[in-house]
Nucleic acid binder design. Structure first.
Lengths: 239, 239
DNA sequence: ATTATCTATAGATCTATAGATAATGC
DNA sequence: ATTATCTATAGATCTATAGATAATGC
């Protein structure tokens, strides 16, 4: 956790030759960064605008100058990154399908869907990792923020669903959606990076180790889809 | 969502012949129920003691009379149910192992671990379902409540890990723990019951339908474990 | 005589706004 | 002349406590 709560003056270089639009852009980003870090750890209601302002060394009222209220700030945090990862992932899935044509596989579809996202959080620096943790929180707390996040993410999910159906045409829609439900839960817990797996495994696995997760996740989930597909076919569903 | 925010008087039957200890016990449970419902939707910081008190028609100061402060109330909400489900699940896993001896399977272990929990939330009424949603939130928001919850749940997880190792002795500890990480994420998203899968699937799947999840989840996860085990054996892990 | 509940209130935030000051823009 | 930032503050909570009232306990 490098983005500390310690003041990191935003307005400090008052002598530097920043144009007003640069100043505006920089301060806006600083506010969003600080808000993202704080919201990701404490939730919408666990953060005050004063804390956000203090984190970057400006006055609370400046936050109001740029964002009408707390909720608008929160929404802006989501709107800043969600569309970026959404379009990357759709592109990755489009590219995958274009490259294999009809030969779509479960693993291929899941890799396109998952790896693109894991990479964004893995290589995007701390700000992106904070956003990932926030996304995980929002997803399990529908009261705040879920609408925006879901609206932006729906097309990504539906793109994956389409690929999964193509890979497994014999699979029922119900099984596909439940499978997606499991995939999404596992991904969100990954993004939350709580350090829980570190403790449970005695340090063998680390929450931050997205490379290890990337190496296993698509394979694991593809195996899961096949298993429920098989179960349906055999009618071996236990009561 | 039946537990509404509308006042449901706790102190109303002042004429009824309740002993003081009964009164104490009832009011305590009412406060915990209301707090559980509210915390599960809005998080620790999104709920005021006034809202909790209002939900059951008593004065805010009565909440302080029973619980020293907000954090104590939050912790009490977790302490009330977590040990119950924890011991049930350990018993279920013990019973499973006792019944099959050395012939532990992935599916068997996962069914014991998952189904017991899903049943608690499925048949335990709204209060339990609220607790499940709260657990899901807490798990992804380490700042509040995760310590208590994790401390109470650690033995349950380690019991599962032991069974999984017995079922798959050739599997590496790392793979087992990462597999658990995926299982846990999928379970928590299930408990969150956000209604997201309902929207995505156009109503085909429902968040509340724990029976459908129970029918698929252990099978799906077992397939996942086998797939990563297979991948390790073949050294087919992609870069 | 004890304890469950309520009334009243102090003190501490927190949000949001109005208005002042100090920069940049032309 | 405009706009970025700060000062000051009103108004609205929210937590927590002290003390009053109304029950039950013996």
């Amino acid at each position: 956790m490098v983005v500390s709560d310690a003041p990191r003056r935003a307005g400090t270089p008052k002598s530097s030759a920043r144009s007003k639009s640069e100043q505006r852009a920089e301060t806006t980003q600083h506010i969003l960064d600080a808000a993202e870090a704080l919201f990701s750890r404490h939730g919408l209601h666990g953060v005050t605008l004063g804390q956000v302002a203090k984190a970057i060394g400006v006055h609370t009222s400046l936050v109001h100058y740029y964002f009408s209220d707390k909720r608008a700030l929160f929404d802006a945090v989501i709107e800043r990154r969600a569309p970026v990862t959404a379009s990357k992932r759709i592109q990755a899935m489009d590219a995958y399908e274009a490259s294999v044509g009809e030969a779509v596989t479960l693993e291929g579809a899941l890799h396109a869907f998952l790896d693109t996202d894991l990479d964004a959080y893995r290589t995007g620096g701390e700000a992106w990792r904070n956003f990932g943790a926030l996304a995980a929180q929002v997803a399990n707390t529908p009261e705040w923020g879920a609408e925006i996040m879901n609206r932006l993410m729906d097309p990504v999910v539906m793109r994956l669903i389409a690929l999964l159906k193509k890979a497994m045409p014999e699979m029922s829609d119900e099984d596909i959606f439940w499978g997606y439900h499991f995939v999404s839960g596992a991904l969100l817990t990954t993004l939350a990076r709580t350090g829980r797996i570190d403790v449970l495994s005695g340090g063998l696995c680390r929450s931050e180790d997205f490379a290890s997760i990337k190496r296993r996740m698509a394979t694991f989930m593809a195996g899961g889809f096949r298993a429920i597909c098989e179960q349906e076919r055999n009618g071996t569903a236990p009561a």
